[in-house]
Design a protein around this nucleic acid. Sequence first.
DNA 1: AACCGAGTACCAGATAGTGGTACGGATGCC
DNA 2: GGCATCCGTACCACTATCTGGTACTCGGTT
Lengths: 298, 298
Amino acid sequence: MVHAVSQMSVILAVTEIPYYGKECYKMRNAPSNPDLVARKVAGASVEGEAKASTGSQTLLRGLDVIEAMGDGPVTLPDLAVRLGLTRSTTHRLATALIERRYLTFTPRLGYQFGPKLLELGFLAQRQTDIVQVARPHLEELAATTEDTVHLGVLDGERALYLDKIAGRRRVDIRSRVGDRHPLTSTGLGKALLIDHAPENWAVLFAQDQAAGAPAMDYAVWEGRMRAYAQSGHSFDLEENEDLIRCVAAPIRGAGGAIVAAISVSSAAQYMSDDRMADLAQDVRDAAGAVSRELGWSG
Amino acid sequence: MVHAVSQMSVILAVTEIPYYGKECYKMRNAPSNPDLVARKVAGASVEGEAKASTGSQTLLRGLDVIEAMGDGPVTLPDLAVRLGLTRSTTHRLATALIERRYLTFTPRLGYQFGPKLLELGFLAQRQTDIVQVARPHLEELAATTEDTVHLGVLDGERALYLDKIAGRRRVDIRSRVGDRHPLTSTGLGKALLIDHAPENWAVLFAQDQAAGAPAMDYAVWEGRMRAYAQSGHSFDLEENEDLIRCVAAPIRGAGGAIVAAISVSSAAQYMSDDRMADLAQDVRDAAGAVSRELGWSG
DNA sequence: AACCGAGTACCAGATAGTGGTACGGATGCC
DNA sequence: GGCATCCGTACCACTATCTGGTACTCGGTT
C-alpha cells in the first residue's frame, strides 16, 4: 500500500529517461541473414510492433508457441506456419513444452494447453489482490481528476467499498472503506450491474426503492442502464445524494466477468455534463488497465 | 474419444524401445566446461531427474523462472541463486517474461506472476472438458478391473453421472449417463462429499433418508465418512442397491476443490473386502492422474 | 556512508539453437 | 490397395544466439 505512489513515479521517471538503450539493441539485432527477417515478417509478427528488443529468442518463441493455442488445438504444420518457423524448430519447442506440462498432445487433434497453465493460473489468481493491483491506477485517476475515487465490489445486494482516495477539493464525500451502499442509485453500483439481465435489474431496483432510496421511475432508470451497458460506464446524477455526481466503470477479471468497479465522485458544481463525458473515458481507461492486469484481454 | 486406447499403447510401445537416443544426447550435452555442471548440481535440479534431454535450454530456464514465483514474490538475487544461474542471465530471462506479461515486477518486493498467466489459465480452463480428460483413465481402469466405471459430478443435492464404461462381467449395473443418483448412499456421491463439513453431511443425509434411501444409522454413516475423508476414497457396501458394491475417489481441480469423482462398481460376489482395499488404491491413482491433468499438484 | 537491489551496457567465446533433410510408423482418404 | 498427411526421431553443419563475466548508475535502507 505504502509503496504504490513511489512505485508509480519511479517507473515513470525511469522510462522517460531517453538513455541510449535502443541504439545498442539495434546494433545487436542487426540482421546479417536476410532470410530470417523475411520469414519473421511473413510469420507471426504481422502487427507493427517493431520493439523486438530483449534477446532471448528461444524463450520468446516458446511463449509464442504456448499462446498460439489460444483458439483450440493446433497441428504441428499449422503451428509452424503460424509462427513462421521450421517444422524442426517448432517441434523441438513444442516437445519441451509438453515435457513441462505446458502443452498436451492429442493424436488426431494436435497440441493444446496443458495442466501447468491451469496450475499457474490458479496460483496467480490466488496471489492477486484487486485492491493492491488497482491502487496505482486509482491514485493516477485521483491525481488527474482531483476528485474522490472509489473501488468497490458486489457484495450480495449491495456495493462494498474496498478502497478510497479522497479528492483534493474542499467537498466532503461521506464514505469509508467497508461501507455498503445501494446498487441501483450509485454510479459504482450501476457499473457493477451493467452485465446483469434486465429482470435482475428490476428486482434490485424494487428492493432499493423499498429500502428507502430516492424515488425514481423504473422506466427512466432502465433506459439509462441500457445506455450505460452499451457504453461501458455509468453515471450517478445526484440520485443517491443531492449535489453529488459520479462517473463509474466496471473492472473485469480473466474470464470477462465484472469483478469490481471504479468511480470518481464530486460535487455537482464540478461535474458539468461535458466534464462527465470526458471523465467517462478516463474512468473506463483506468478500469481497463486494471482489468488487463487481472488477465482480461478483451 | 476413439483414439484413447491406441494413444496409450502407442506411447508405451515407443518409449519402451531402447533405441540409441540417449547416447546421442549424452554426446551433445557432454560438458566441456566443468563449472556449468557444478553450478547445475548445486542449483535447481536437486532431485535425481537425470532426464535432461530435449535441448531448448533457454526456454526451459525461462519456464523455471516462471515457476519459481510459486510461493510469492522473489528478488533477483534470490531467483538467481534458486535457479543456479548468473544474475546476468536471470535478469535477461525475467525481463523477457515481464515484457510478455508473464511476470510483474514490484519495486520493493520482487518478481511475481503476471496477468498473462491468469489469461492463459482461464483460456485453458475453458478448453478443458473433464469428460474428455478423464476418458483414457476411465478406460484404463475399466480394462484392469473388468468392472463398470463411472464419472460423476455434484449437481445440487445429487450426483450427476457424466460418463460410464460398462464392465466385462455378466453383471448388470443399471445406470446411464445423465442419471442423477443420491449422494449419501452411493460410493461416487460420498467421494464428492469427502471435503464437506459434517454439518452439511447431516443435512444431506437426512434429505436422502426422507427421499426413501435405504434406512441407515447416521452415527455409523458419519463414522465411515470420516474414515473415507481421511483415506481419500469411499465405499458403497450394498447401501444403495442390494448386491452392488463400489469403490470411489474424488478428482480435484487446479484449486484443490473436488470437481468430480470416479467409481468402480460390481456385484458383491466380485467385491471381497480384500479386493476393495486393492481397488481403492487403483481408483485413487486414476483420480489422481486426472486431477493432475486438471492442474492439481497436491 | 556503506550496502543492497535493480536496470543498463558491453563483450569475447562457444554453447546451444537453427533449419535442412530424411526415414518409419500410423492413420485416414480415395 | 495405394496415397497423402502428420508426427516422432535422428543427424548435422553453421553460426546466430546465449552465456556469464564485469562495471557503472540510480534509489532506497540501514
